[in-house]
Design a protein around this nucleic acid. Structure first.
Lengths: 200, 200
DNA sequence: GATAAAAAATGAACCAGATTAAGAAATTCG
DNA sequence: CGAATTTCTTAATCTGGTTCATTTTTTATC
């Protein structure tokens, strides 16, 4: 029951849902518990479901030929997570989606969601608007990676997502920001120096 | 008349439009000619219209405090162009959108498009699907910039968009790929060496 | 609470790519 | 055409960030 509330609060920010609308979505949702280190997606397998995070934390990352990890996305409460490309095209995934903590999610299959959007204009609209927002967000991240220094990227992210910085391992954050864990460690150490000296 | 055909061909790949649907969109479209070096958007001004390119070429770029340009997007025939963040939120732009050649575009205002999407589920669906695709595309570019070398990024782009490589100035391409024009020049020169020596 | 395992920190050598400064080619446009 | 402007190239030098190897700290597990 009330488990669906956060999801509908989110959707409600963009479209007005009545009880029928809600039931229509609920009908295709399943709830799942995911233990830390479990995977919601793996390279080679089609990512059939998208997940809405009720509690916990995830990251989506790719491992290249040299065995180096690149994190494309984190997700905590009130975020969606999947290998999105695999999900919307229903093609084999290239990312791992792994739980960083014991988590609870609401899941829905691609064909169910697509049918829901076709049937109900409100959901189509919601996912249109949020996809456009996600796109502008991604554009900002592109700019950040091509235009800013490693330290600037870290500071920017820390200000915008202090909660995520606390919750995810540092090597995962480094791989999201496009730098080595060693260098992130160095940045943090430099900063500690800068600020605490002034206070002391 | 037939000027609208490329746009409707594009939309037709995702939703089936009848004549009424088409007229509904045409009603909010205006056609515009843009000379080389003219701007469709400028920092500080709200980007009221989105443009669909019938002919010509554009780039969207930002100039940072140090006067360095960063290109976020190119657009040639059959692409849309705008400062997308400014367009969807109707807030002041941060990008220049500049014509690289004399061009022809179809333009529509944000509020007209939003009303069209509200009114007609098919357009809502079209823009939902294309926004999602744009997002996965942006994710790939993020990965490319954080995970690949400058040379790899250039080769990748050259293979995917040989037409764009031919048409845009090299400094603009460099600023899109996240490297200096000098370094792109070096890469090209190195490659020339690699391949032509083997043939000679 | 002991022990193992994972994560973070440190430091030195190294390199991809930036910066700077000129000059050479190519375009533009009167 | 021819001058001005824009774009591209080349080369020397510099640096932000990587790599690799080791140590310290934190976290997980029985």
């Amino acid at each position: 029951m009330q488990d669906y509330q956060p999801l509908f609060d989110n959707i409600g920010r963009y479209v007005e849902l009545d009880e029928d609308d809600r039931q229509e979505f609920i009908a295709i949702i399943r709830k799942a518990f995911v233990k830390r280190r479990q995977f919601l997606a793996q390279p080679g397998f089609v990512c059939t479901h998208q997940s809405y995070v009720l509690s916990g934390a995830f990251r989506a990352y790719l491992v290249n030929n040299e065995g180096i990890e690149h994190t494309i996305k984190f997700a905590i409460e009130d975020w969606f997570i999947s290998d999105f490309d695999s999900f919307i095209h229903q093609t084999p995934a290239s990312f791992f989606v792994e739980a960083l903590e014991d988590s609870t999610v609401l899941q829905f299959a691609h064909h169910d969601l697509d049918a829901l959007c076709s049937r109900n204009h409100k959901y189509e609209r919601y996912f249109r608007i949020t996809a456009q927002k996600a796109f502008t967000f991604a554009q900002k991240r592109i700019l950040s990676t091509i235009a800013k220094t490693a330290e600037q990227r870290y500071l920017e992210f820390s200000e915008q997502y202090p909660d995520i910085v606390q919750r995810v391992p540092q090597y995962a954050l480094a791989s999201y920001l496009g730098m080595t864990p060693e260098f992130l460690s160095k940045i943090r150490n430099n900063m500690r120096g800068k600020y605490s000296l002034k206070q002391g």
